[in-house]
Design a protein around this nucleic acid. Structure first.
Lengths: 274, 274
DNA sequence: ATATACGTTCGGGATGAACAAACGCCACGG
DNA sequence: CCGTGGCGTTTGTTCATCCCGAACGTATAT
């Protein structure tokens, strides 16, 4: 036998779940690092990620060949291809396609800011907005992620997910605190979700930004689970009384419904052509 | 000797240039395929890419863990993280930051569509636009790539690159034909570039879209090479006479200059703070 | 009920990724 | 002018890792 007894070595992915390609994980780590560092050199990345210089170099060459990173003068940065993919992902998204018109209408009818957020796991991802005449300016950027439990739109989604699913998300991600108003206790969250269900609408209470108030409603996918949410956001001063309690909730619910119908029609159309 | 004569095997990356990580190449291929196919199942991808099902599954699991793809009901799609990265890449881009205001001004002053294109290799990447009162609608989307030789903005960049570099690009990519008006002969291209240099401005001649005309000027980076271009685009009917030959070229050149200065100031500021 | 198609899991063997060290290059500074 | 340090790049070798193929479980359709 060549080599004598085979030493039983600790191969395999330790144990953390299903098999993964470690090279791809490393490539993803490099991409994330390039973002965090706003671009970097090879040595910098190597120390940051605890890899050998040679190895980092090979990875970067590969990513560069695939246009995911660019290099100039020894400095590597994320490439503009991401912009291309990002636009693609957005436009190909069914909710985005179906919501565009309704968002615009919401904005012009209310004069405020209308927003679309989509769920991905425990996060809500801000997809699109439409600005009314008096719309506030926000620093939120498309693609930005935020935990569902700390935005009104996120809570609108959570409220209509199965309780077991919500518990799973809490167990997995906890309830990270974002501002002093963030709900950090599970019981408190469930009370709030209960209230949202009874109203059919989620209100925010300045959880992320002081003085900002939102009215949000969920959008259901074809499978009956909430997959997104739309909302109207404005300053507390204008988001009050009847408008805040009756008018805007009605608008938001109506538009959410229109969007759902648009989505259903689009899926039907798609099924027919294939 | 363990194993007898070692069979000399053809390992290594065949020969095509520098070493790359093949797993990462495959991951990139999968990402591209998911885009082409607008999402796909595992078997579909496996046949499309000529890989084994098991292998594709492992890759997709890895990409899913890193939020680059999402899965629902056995159907895999590119994830919304790309939107996040795309926005990041855009906003972190120095040219984009410096050009925003100038673009808006160009649009309001002319009433037409103002555009910003950035170079990446042999391609121009459409980065941003500003719409004037009468701006035409285009189907071009941020992040979209087009060869430099078939847009006015691309030619504005080419004209001010070293001739050797232009030759290299032609040798590597050729001059693919996009419409009947595309320049496909190197000599013809060099004549046109010569003319652009003498005017200091690039005019389009409906190369990509019938009835569309542009006036474009390059934007130089700190190293003295053109790295981007801005342009005013409108219908041939309005892009005529003095406006087309004098007024708009002047505006475009001026704004390009402002953008260059903005960029220099930004880099200086950045250097100081570090 | 049977068959087909699909996603998933798993072992074993070949391939390829990682390391480390050396190299070339440039910019400083002695 | 040469030495020195920092950087990106290259390369040989070794061992881990990824790939294949085949089996399994499940859902859907005939």
């Amino acid at each position: 036998m060549c080599g004598g007894d085979a030493a039983i070595v600790m191969t395999e992915n330790s144990d953390d779940g299903p098999r993964t390609i470690q090279s791809v994980e490393k490539a993803c780590a490099i991409i994330r690092a390039l973002r965090e560092l706003d671009g970097a050199g090879i040595t910098e990345l190597a120390t940051h990620l605890d890899m050998s210089k040679g190895s980092v170099h090979t990875y970067l060459t590969t990513l560069k060949r695939n246009d995911l990173v660019t290099e100039s003068g020894g400095r590597y940065q994320l490439g503009l291809s991401f912009l291309d993919f990002g636009e693609y992902v957005k436009r190909q998204n069914l909710v985005y396609q179906s919501a565009q018109d309704s968002l615009d209408e919401m904005a012009t009818e209310t004069g405020e800011l209308a927003r679309l957020v989509m769920r991905e796991g425990a996060h809500g991802i801000y997809l699109a907005k439409a600005e009314g005449e008096n719309a506030i300016e926000t620093t939120v950027r498309p693609g930005q992620r935020e935990y569902l439990h700390c935005t009104s739109q996120g809570k609108a989604i959570l409220a209509h997910l199965p309780t077991s699913e919500v518990r799973r998300l809490i167990a997995e991600h906890g309830l990270p605190e974002r501002t002093a108003n963030t709900i950090t206790e599970a019981d408190e969250l469930f009370d709030e979700l209960e209230e949202i269900r009874s109203h059919g609408i989620a209100f925010s209470r300045s959880e992320l930004t002081r003085g900002l108030r939102c009215v949000a409603a969920p959008i259901y996918g074809t499978d009956g689970t909430p997959i997104a949410a739309i909302g109207i956001c404005g300053p507390t001063s204008r988001m009050q009384g009847d408008r805040f309690r009756e008018e805007y909730p009605k608008i938001v619910r109506d538009k959410a419904n229109v969007i759902e119908i648009n989505m259903q029609m689009a899926t039907k159309r798609h099924a027919e052509t294939s």
